[in-house]
Design a protein around this nucleic acid. Structure first.
Lengths: 226, 226
DNA sequence: TGATCTATTGGAACATCGTTCCAACCGTGT
DNA sequence: ACACGGTTGGAACGATGTTCCAATAGATCA
């Protein structure tokens, strides 16, 4: 028999899917740094060598985990007739995914050639096309949207890296922003007037609204150039 | 005597500035991964313990190196009367700095609370203000520009991570983009029509022009909302 | 059925890294 | 001359990603 159709050896047999699932659980509950092959092996009750039979290396594992999360976003059929609304919904889906899994942000911005980014590129690009942007400008417009999203993804991941795990994130976030704002408020007024002004609105600002505002700004730019 | 004014012990005495300088040399010539405390100690003909007396940890070292590069950009007096041109020049300065030192891109996007980012925020924000953007919208507009720049910074750093060191970067870059384009061209046409279309323009596109286009798109959005 | 074969497993071992620790050093002040 | 403290150099520690390999278990075949 040339092709081998393998039935599962045991119900708890190792597989890439099961490994990725366990990795995501660790990443979500204990943070980026907690994902080690030893911790993963312990959770799966196996050795690190067994994991390496299913996964090429840690990059491969993180890319698969990221793709798993992002696929859940891009798979949703997006409602809304106007392309602007579809783009906004897609982008917000990515934003919410990063909010729920901050490590995804770091992974997306660190490795732009992975499948997850390709998925986003396709979905957003097709809507840019539908928006009527001239073909020559579609490339720049789409990658501008992507760069903005990936840039914010990286910042979000950096923020999550500061917070301790297993705590009330929103409360800690507020305290953290207030600390930053306090530091900014003490900067030299002649050298940093704008940042000092930002400090007054920083602690109360809404991430999500800030994100949508950025998307809308780029969308508005696309319309005005058209 | 309460204050101690120390003359240098030797002309080759260790100092944070000298350490940062050596770190930048390693980062530029051998890439991000090559910067280890052992390599740094070897280049400075000392031990890692001595370095730790001047530098808190590797994050501190990388932040100082990044700040050194970015300070060189934001210190330049920017010419041009129109705020749009000033913003474009500033952004291009950062772009060129990242082009010359790809590791700066990774560092900027990974750690948005460091001094270098603060510098950029101040310079760009003040120009957004000069542009006449209403005060309530200044925060979102400025951070949108920053997110875009940081997003592209991360992608640029990721690209540099792929290339081997000590080679003709532009030639390798071309070959790499052609490889990516070839892979994209073989995707399922029904599932990835847009990315397949992008593949045709990917190898010849100009990074710098793409970057300016993104900046201009956001600037256009700011003007149209105004 | 029993022997064999191969995909898969579990964990020891290795190289490398960031970081800590500490004994020695050297210029300065008493 | 002596002691002191800022500074140095390198050994040592703990952790990580990865490799290596002997042992296993289920499928296949005689």
């Amino acid at each position: 028999m040339a092709t081998k159709i393998r039935t599962e050896r045991r119900t708890d047999a190792l597989s890439k899917a099961r490994i990725v699932e366990a990795a995501i659980e660790i990443l979500d509950s204990e943070g980026e740094d907690a994902l080690t092959f030893r911790a993963l092996a312990a959770r799966l009750s196996t050795g690190s060598g067994a994991i390496y039979w299913h996964v090429a290396d840690k990059n491969d594992l993180l890319a698969a985990a990221t793709d798993h999360v992002i696929a859940g976003v891009t798979a949703d059929a997006v409602r809304g007739l106007r392309p602007q609304e579809v783009i906004r919904t897609l982008a917000l889906g990515v934003f919410d995914a990063i909010h729920a899994h901050p490590w995804v942000g770091g992974q997306l911005s660190r490795n732009p050639w992975q499948d997850a980014v390709l998925r986003m590129l396709e979905r957003i690009g097709s809507q840019v096309q539908a928006l009527g942007v001239p073909e020559r400008a579609q490339f720049n417009a789409t990658t501008a949207l992507m760069s903005f999203i990936l840039g914010l993804a990286g910042q979000y991941a950096a923020g999550a890296r500061v917070f301790p795990r297993h705590t009330d994130r929103s409360a800690f976030r507020k305290a953290f922003l207030e600390t930053v704002a306090a530091k900014w408020a003490q900067l030299d007024p002649t050298e940093h007037p704008f940042v000092r002004q930002l400090a007054t609105v920083l602690p109360e600002h809404d991430d999500r609204e800030q994100f949508v505002a950025g998307i809308d700004l780029i969308l508005a730019g696309m319309e005005s150039v058209q």
